[in-house]
Amino acid sequence: MKYLVHPIYPYMICGVDEAGKGAVLGPLVVGVVGCEAEEALPDGVRDSKALTPRRREVLYTEITASFPWQTVVVEAAEIDRLRQEMTMNDLVARAHARAVMRLGGAGRAYLDACDVNEERYRSKVAALIGGDCEVVARHHGDALFPVVSAASIVAKVTRDRALEDLRAEFGAVGSGYPSDRVTIAYLKDYIAGHGTAPAFARTSWETVSRLFDRRRQTSLGDF
């Protein structure tokens, strides 16, 4: 059965989660999935990090074929721009709120809280959404609420596909995270060869700043 997104379903719940918050390469992707009851979600829905890539793809197909869903994609350049005006947590909160509003029709939204203070995060997103939507924010929400797990799958698969596109165009960029040696090697080589970071890098990240500092120090050492 397909669940239609429409304001006549004020009792519909939705879950929201993001992928790529801490990445230095590629976009931040927020996923939102709606349903009338969590029991209706596909069997095996759980935190995307606990699933194999193959299983995520299967569940993604099932979720997006039968439930209302949306994504909000914030590219690296936009992240850099917004970080001049707000914290990363505020940026994610705004994206979470945008996702809920883009979906429409939810009477309650469950969020994976991106703040050490769950109530502060809940209040912030609720104010951004406005209206009568009840907001519930919890740490590890993707493990607590199946509907948030479903959103995490949509967000993760969407971001993974974006990274695949980057690999196809630019080569071995890795996972995009600072802990990934392939990602750091790619960034280091790109900066050394071009004198700038690639367009899909978050230049406001300390990771990129350190690589530029090392490049300057190496250049000075040549004199």
Score class of each variant (00 low, 15 high):
1 M>N: 06
5 V>K: 14
5 V>G: 12
6 H>Q: 07
7 P>F: 04
8 I>V: 14
16 V>F: 08
17 D>A: 09
23 A>Y: 14
23 A>D: 15
24 V>K: 10
24 V>S: 11
26 G>V: 08
30 V>W: 09
31 G>K: 00
31 G>L: 02
37 A>C: 04
40 A>C: 01
42 P>S: 04
42 P>E: 06
44 G>R: 10
49 K>C: 08
51 L>F: 11
55 R>Q: 14
57 E>V: 11
58 V>A: 15
58 V>H: 13
60 Y>Q: 06
63 I>V: 09
65 A>I: 00
68 P>S: 09
68 P>C: 08
72 V>H: 02
72 V>D: 05
72 V>P: 05
75 E>T: 11
80 D>V: 13
80 D>K: 11
84 Q>E: 15
87 T>V: 09
89 N>E: 02
91 L>Y: 07
91 L>V: 09
93 A>D: 03
93 A>T: 00
94 R>M: 13
98 R>Q: 15
98 R>C: 08
103 L>K: 00
105 G>N: 00
112 D>S: 03
113 A>N: 02
114 C>G: 10
118 E>N: 08
119 E>D: 12
122 R>A: 02
122 R>H: 02
122 R>T: 01
123 S>A: 15
124 K>I: 00
125 V>K: 04
126 A>W: 01
127 A>M: 10
127 A>R: 13
131 G>A: 12
133 C>R: 02
135 V>N: 07
137 A>S: 13
138 R>C: 10
140 H>V: 00
142 D>P: 03
142 D>G: 06
142 D>C: 06
144 L>D: 11
144 L>N: 05
149 S>A: 15
152 S>M: 04
153 I>M: 01
154 V>N: 03
157 V>R: 07
160 D>Q: 11
160 D>P: 10
164 E>Y: 07
165 D>G: 15
166 L>R: 05
166 L>V: 07
170 F>C: 03
172 A>M: 04
172 A>S: 12
175 S>R: 15
176 G>F: 09
176 G>N: 08
177 Y>N: 09
179 S>I: 03
179 S>G: 06
183 T>V: 03
186 Y>V: 02
187 L>K: 09
189 D>L: 05
189 D>V: 01
192 A>L: 10
195 G>H: 01
195 G>E: 01
200 F>S: 11
200 F>Y: 15
201 A>F: 12
201 A>C: 10
201 A>D: 07
201 A>T: 10
202 R>H: 12
203 T>D: 01
206 E>K: 14
207 T>A: 15
207 T>E: 11
210 R>Q: 13
211 L>E: 04
211 L>S: 01
213 D>F: 09
215 R>K: 13
217 Q>L: 14
218 T>F: 05
220 L>S: 12
220 L>M: 13
221 G>T: 06
223 F>V: 12
